[in-house]
Design a protein around this nucleic acid. Structure first.
Lengths: 247, 247
DNA sequence: CGACACTTTGAAGACGATCAACGCCGGTGG
DNA sequence: CCACCGGCGTTGATCGTCTTCAAAGTGTCG
């Protein structure tokens, strides 16, 4: 479906900051909207990378499978985020992961050459992309570090803490945004381990019951994570949060 | 020390492909050469990111430490590679890792603004940088995946296999490029575990004695790794290698 | 109500970390 | 020249943690 009006979520994307709304709309309107239903594949490992996608609505799970059938969820991409932004610039032209809609999802599909052209034409887009991909690289590095040096409980605590920072909740309750099976796969552990782990972090300022998470002592939680987590001290969002009054 | 003549290693860097030698030299000659001796720090966690570095000679270890003193080697950067290339584009302005020379090392230091300017001025540099950082992001993701789903033996086998691909050795012997302590730290495992692991991978086409690695059956090794390693099937270098005659 | 997806719980086993001791080697100084 | 030391690597025993396999519980939707 061709695009008639630029969705609001695209208007607020950091990727397009620095160019005029007119230019942005002109670019975006060369794309097509695609609807995907739950569990439908967007693309698969080994297929050529032809398009760049912006998630307009819904969620997409990125994962990779190995020859012996083990599957690892690499990331979960939400509205306002993008797919294939880094693959397009790599010399390897095939997809290295699978993308599957985990709920009813709308994607804006742009030919990948379009993104390259934009990058060449607008230096500010190049800088935005570099900032974005650099950030993703950093997060991937941190994740590898966590997998290497943190215990399952610490990984889970750190994940929940980041969720709370993202939702700007310092004390209080929120609901897990995905199923526990998906979270476990995202964190690189077995569902059973994740389930058991939720009990053990109870004494560290956070409590999980069913899909509900409650932070009852953010200092305790911060202390528990801080010793092991090098992101914590880096986290700009967290520092900003500390200056705000408790919600 | 100011730069008089552009070192050969810089002339062959993929980062500068697409611009003329004259332009490249003009850019590079605004930098300064710095000498670092073994164990000397190049920069530390928390310091502002002011420069972009090109390793002209030697090797630099990147690592991160957590509050409780655990240290993880993130990467080992060799001649022709760069430091801080992605940090510069990120909005977070402080270094998130430490850099330490692991042998006598010469670095070319360029003000980070220079790299940003180059990116804006030459779209081809922007594309080169995007390709480079995208590739690094991918490798970091793969590493996180490996930490999550592979055993220590598989991680070690995969590491040695990648070394052999890089050295273009399909069958035969080569020497480990770093101390075992450093490799263990790079792979996120304890030295003891690494040491023991080297014995267990013996039956999989590869043998390690002291600092010497011998690949005596590359098919066996490939088979051992392939089931678990999603990079293997992706690896362009590996595919190229398979087409070459056995050295 | 039954089917199915998702989650919890238990018991057993595998694997890597930890602690501790020792071997090896190169350099330094008496 | 030998003794000593420090950095590096190996080996052994033990322990804790995560995975595996198995079974049962919960919830939702047709």
């Amino acid at each position: 479906m061709p695009l008639t009006v630029t969705p609001h979520i695209i208007q607020t994307m950091p990727l397009f900051t620095g160019i005029s709304a007119k230019e942005r709309n002109h670019l975006v309107q060369e794309g097509c909207l695609h609807q995907f239903s739950r569990k439908q594949m967007v693309f698969s490992q080994g297929e050529p990378v032809k398009y760049f996608y912006i998630v307009v609505q819904g969620m997409v799970r990125l994962y990779r499978s190995t020859a012996d059938g083990v599957e690892k969820t690499i990331n979960i991409v939400k509205a306002g985020q993008t797919l294939c932004e880094s693959e397009i610039f790599d010399t390897y032209v095939l997809n290295r992961m699978n993308a599957e809609a985990i709920e009813d999802t709308v994607l804006l599909e742009l030919p990948s050459e379009k993104l390259k052209d934009m990058t060449k034409k607008y230096p500010v887009i190049a800088l935005n992309l570099l900032a974005m991909i650099s950030q993703q690289r950093y997060m991937a590095e941190v994740e590898a570090e966590h997998q290497a040096i943190m215990s399952a409980s610490q990984i889970v605590a750190c994940f929940l803490w980041r969720l709370s920072v993202h939702k700007r909740i310092r004390q209080g309750r929120f609901k897990l945004p995905y199923t526990k099976t998906l979270i476990a796969s995202r964190l690189g552990m077995k569902l059973e381990t994740f389930s058991r782990t939720l009990k053990t972090i109870n004494g560290h300022g956070i409590r999980v019951e069913g899909a509900w998470v409650e932070i009852y002592n953010s200092e305790l939680l911060a202390e528990y994570i801080c010793h092991h987590c090098s992101v914590m001290s880096d986290c700009v969002a967290y520092k900003a949060l500390q200056k705000e009054p408790v919600s």
